[in-house]
């Protein structure tokens, strides 16, 4: 079902002549509308990029200067001295990679239990997983914080990794995918003498690469962009993520518009790269979560 997304939309079965009349006008109108709207959606990015190459006093001008008269590339060199951006980027990377690895590994392992092994209590347990997806995190973040405080893990990366790595979403997404894999495959492997763990590792995992990629990308982006978690748990400057570090910079130097935009652009670049490399998996992953 979701594979359809990668192909261009269906061509309606009209005769060539009728498309050449009403169809062309419709197509031009469709294109124009799409281009205008997409450009409108992209304006904030254009403004961010253009401001990041200006001087502070050139950011707010009347009328707006979309292309700076003089490109200040120095902003991109100076920002590293102004804030410890490398540390922040590194911290974001550590958190995102650890959370993603743990989530994908334990999530797909648990999903196999939920989708392919039949045992009493399984469905009740799965319901508990699903139910917590609907509970807003805010509803239980205080008890979570108390637990972390008792464990002495507040203000460590480990607290955030533990909090975010065992989410129910990964289990849910992988189970949805495993259900689409026919049971005959695992039956056949069972007859060949493979254990359940062998079936998971040698049959199911290789088949679920696209779903694993989807889950990995969604988890990575969500962890990278998370604000509330690091905001609550990390107080030491040298543990901060890019999001927290950038926000703190904005708070301290709120008139350095150009520099703020430079930092924003840099914080977006890693995620943009990840997104562009794997965007088809993103789209699939989101689509899978919506189709039951």
């Amino acid at each position: 079902m979701t594979a359809l997304l990668d192909t261009p939309a269906r061509v309606t079965g009209r005769t060539p002549r009728s498309t050449s009349r009403g169809g062309t006008a419709g197509k031009v109108a469709g294109y124009t509308l799409l281009i205008v709207l997409s450009l409108a959606v992209m304006i904030p990015f254009a403004w961010m990029l253009s401001s990041s190459l200006k001087q502070n006093n050139q950011v707010f001008t009347v009328p707006i200067q979309w292309i700076p008269t003089e490109l200040r590339w120095e902003n991109y060199a100076e920002i590293w001295d102004r804030i410890p951006l490398w540390t922040y980027l590194g911290n974001s990377m550590i958190l995102s990679v650890s959370v993603t690895a743990l989530q994908v590994l334990t999530g797909s392992f648990a999903a196999y239990g939920f989708a392919k092994v039949r045992f009493p209590g399984r469905d009740a347990l799965f319901l508990a997983y699903i139910a917590t997806i609907a509970v807003p995190w805010q509803a239980y973040m205080v008890p979570q914080y108390i637990i972390m405080q008792k464990l002495g893990l507040v203000d460590t990366h480990l607290s955030l990794i533990l909090l975010q790595a065992f989410g129910a979403f990964g289990v849910f997404l992988m189970r949805q995918f495993y259900l689409t894999i026919p049971d005959e495959l695992s039956e056949a492997a069972r007859l060949d003498g493979l254990s359940e763990y062998g079936i998971w590792a040698r049959v199911i995992l290789p088949l679920s690469k696209p779903a694993l990629a989807s889950l990995a990308l969604l988890t990575f982006v969500n962890t990278w962009n998370d604000y509330m978690g690091p905001f609550i748990y990390l107080t030491s400057n040298d543990l901060w993520t890019v999001q927290i570090g950038l926000r703190a910079f904005v708070g301290l130097y709120d008139a350095e518009y150009a520099m703020i935009m430079t930092g924003s652009v840099i914080s977006v670049v890693p995620i943009l790269t990840v997104f562009l490399l794997g965007q088809r998996y993103f789209v699939r992953g989101i689509a899978t979560s919506g189709l039951k």
Binding site: F109, V117, G121, A139
Partner: peptide
């Protein structure tokens, strides 16, 4: 045996999930 195998798949995720999501939800 199947029950044990089933649980063994779920357990690594479930320990973290139970301690840091399920318990806090009830505690709240």
């Amino acid at each position: 045996r199947t029950t044990l195998i089933g649980w063994s798949f779920i357990l690594p995720n479930f320990i973290g999930f139970a301690a840091l999501t399920l318990v806090p939800v009830v505690a709240a």
